[in-house]
Amino acid sequence: MEILTIGAKFGVYIVMALVLVFALGVVTLRNLFHSALCLAAVLVGTATVYLALRADFVAAIQILVYVGAVMTLIIFAIMLTEHLGEKTIRQTNRQSPAAILGLLGFIFMIGLVILRTPWPVTKRALATGTSVMSLGKALMGSYVFPFEIISVILIAALIGAVVIAKKDPEEKS
């Protein structure tokens, strides 16, 4: 069993590394379609990490919504808005040096914080588990208000997206 544990731990680290690699692919690849695919990979990898963290429902939802719907949406948009054949156009603007420097600073500072903060990791917290039933109870119980608000926002976003994206009605003279 320890081999599985060690293998699992090892695997999680490998998945994390892959996610990071694919994320780099997302931001650097010239071909937007390839970026989108890398994004899909990142999303799947993230779902795996959720599973490692015993958040199985969220992992499932991640795959269903993100990879299923959002990626589809993105692919559609890519296809509607550009010619896929172009490879020669530079994809990064002139800000990259400044951005890289800033980001290195950012990583450094936040990393410092992360490593120095005494996280209150309790055994009891580690032992507690979740189930879909408890999530459903929480959603309908304490978090019913945000749940309803979300639905309103969804309607609003839906209508908004339709309004923005539809063609202007052509005026008949």
């Binding site: 993100y66 959002v70 979300i150 969804l154």
Partner: peptide, 16 residues
């Protein structure tokens, strides 16, 4: 996740 999906939707509508 829901919010992200919504933002992607609206954002892509604007892009279109």
């Amino acid at each position: 996740i829901a919010i992200a999906a919504m933002s992607a939707a609206v954002g892509l509508a604007i892009v279109l």
